[in-house]
Design a binder for these strands. Structure first.
Length: 475
RNA sequence: GGCGGGGUAGCCAAGUGGUAAGGUCGCGGUCUGCAAAACCGCUAUUCGCGGGUUCGAUUCCCGCCCCCGCCUCCA
């Protein structure tokens, strides 16, 4: 099956054809965080979706160059810095750092570049683009000294969101105090400095000020990825006005179609509601870790639902994620053991037939739910074969190779070597002795003591096996 | 009001014009000293509601209801 994605622009599933099919190199631009506070798990749902996208494209042989911007200057960052009484750069640095910590915890592949809005290279580029837009009549400086994009001069404005410009005038939420603008929908390219901005300002042909939010992405995207990019992603809430504005600015400057495929991810809900601090359902990655869950468990929980479907985050869902991952872990361990110590008496070697359906499901607009369905079906089938002693080492090895391949996309394997504390190991040994003497009472007491250390002992054919209990498990 | 996304078992969630993947939870069984893990079985005559098309619709069409999002700087 050909690779296809749902393009927000056409609202249709489209076969993916990169700009340069021969080179198999593709450029992806993803809207990153605004570093005014710690990012929440809803933000990370989007980043995990983008991670899945990148990894699957790479599995399919594409060489992906991905850019994710960091917005480190806007109203909120300026306000935050002012309230904290620290320079803007210092204020945002802590959240940049936190962002990268969380990215690591969630095993999100780092973008090739993380341009920051305050980097002078991009400020220069933004100024250059704004000047060009003015010279083409697509932008103007208003009486308030700010520069605005003239949406009436860009006929395609509204095409991505499927908005009718006339409609914009009738919404109640538009601020009517912005009388300086020609059209209520005109958006700021350059915001003139005012007192509240303090020392946050850059010189420009239109006086001191700072860039508008939208122009930053156009500048970075076109500078780092060229005039046309293959895929541009973000959350659905970015469709309007942000991405609409990006199209207007970029195409207004380059005259070329800016983005071939627009992919947008649905929101994360918490307990069926939008995340909000006032509702007490607002979580960051450390909040989840504090509840005893691991990064990979959260990764799984955020990844397992198709990106265009709203995902409802619940603690029950986190437990499901943990159990499902445990199932994968057990399966892998069993296969590894089979490869390591081939048993005699294995009869007909069941031909390992690692399912291509997994990858084909992902080809279909990243249908991760279907892909995981195939994974778990495969797990049950191979487990059954192993139970019946019908899987040989070669087949087990083939399944492991398959896992290794799909895990380049999932990245869900436990990574931390489990180290059993000496005291737990001792107790386990004592318990084995008791069991050999058929002293079941003592054996069960020892199991309880082991349990008190947070470990669980299981008696297998190959002897006792120690695993960490639920929340405390590593990796 | 406009534009989107969604409504499938207790919960999460695929999917198809021909009679419902998978995960999780629960129950029963095999295995086990007992457990655990694994496996087997059971758990939606039914896919928000009402019409229509069809031999047949959860899937297509029409109408309606509910939830969520966007409508100027929230992923």
């Amino acid at each position: 099956m050909a690779l296809r994605f749902f393009n927000t622009y056409s609202r249709e599933l489209e076969e993916f054809e990169p700009r340069d099919p021969a080179a198999r190199r593709i450029g992806i631009y993803t809207c990153g965080p605004t570093v005014y506070s710690r990012a929440h798990i809803g933000n990370f749902r989007a980043y995990i979706f983008e991670d899945l996208l990148q990894r699957h494209l790479e599995l399919r042989g594409y060489k992906v160059h991905r850019v994710m911007n960091i917005t480190d200057v806007d109203d909120k960052t300026i306000r935050g810095a002012r309230e904290a009484k620290v320079p803007l750069a210092k204020f945002t640095a802590q959240f940049k750092e936190a962002f990268f910590e969380d990215v690591e915890i969630l095993r999100i592949k780092r973008a090739n570049e993380f341009p920051a809005a305050t980097d002078h290279r991009y400020i220069d580029r933004m100024i250059q683009m704004i000047a060009m837009l003015i010279s083409r009549g697509l932008a103007y400086q208003a009486d308030d000294k700010s520069v605005y994009f003239r949406i009436n001069e860009f006929p395609n404005y509204g095409k991505l969101a499927h908005f009718d410009l006339a409609q914009l005038q009738s919404t109640g939420r538009v601020k009517h105090d912005e009388y300086d603008k020609e059209h209520i929908g005109d958006f700021a390219l350059w915001k003139a400095w005012d007192e509240e901005d303090g020392d946050v300002k850059w010189d420009s042909p239109w006086g001191p000020g700072r860039p508008g939010w939208h122009i930053e992405c156009s500048a970075m995207a076109t500078r780092l990825l060229g005039n046309q990019i293959d895929i541009h992603c973000g959350g659905v809430d970015n469709i309007f006005p942000h991405h609409e504005a990006e199209i207007a600015q970029s195409e207004g400057v380059t005259g070329k179609k800016f983005v071939r495929y627009w992919l947008h991810c649905a929101h994360l809900l918490v307990d069926g509601q939008k995340m909000a601090k006032s509702l007490g359902n607002f979580y960051s990655v450390p909040d989840i870790l504090a509840k005893g869950y691991t990064g990979r468990e959260l990764r799984y929980a955020l990844m397992r639902v198709h990106y265009r479907v709203p995902l409802n985050f619940t603690w029950e869902g986190m437990n499901e994620a943990r159990e499902s991952l445990g199932r994968i872990d057990e399966w892998l361990e069993r296969l590894q053991k089979m490869v390591g110590t081939p048993r005699r008496g294995v009869r007909s070697a069941q031909r390992a037939d690692p399912a291509i359906q997994f990858e084909e499901a992902l080809d279909d607009d990243l249908n991760i739910s279907a892909a995981l369905g195939f994974l778990f079906e495969s797990i049950r089938e191979t487990n059954r074969a192993m139970d019946e002693n019908k899987l040989d080492a070669a087949s087990a090895s083939a399944w492991l190779d398959w896992w290794k391949r799909i895990n380049t996309v999932l990245d869900l394997e436990t990574e931390i070597e489990v180290v059993v504390p000496a005291e737990v190991a001792e107790l386990a040994e004592e318990r084995e002795n008791a069991r050999r003497e058929k002293n079941w009472k003592r054996s069960d007491q020892l199991r309880d003591r082991i349990s008190a250390f947070g470990w669980e002992v299981r008696d297998t054919k190959d002897g006792p096996k120690l695993t960490r209990h639920g929340a405390a498990s590593s990796g």
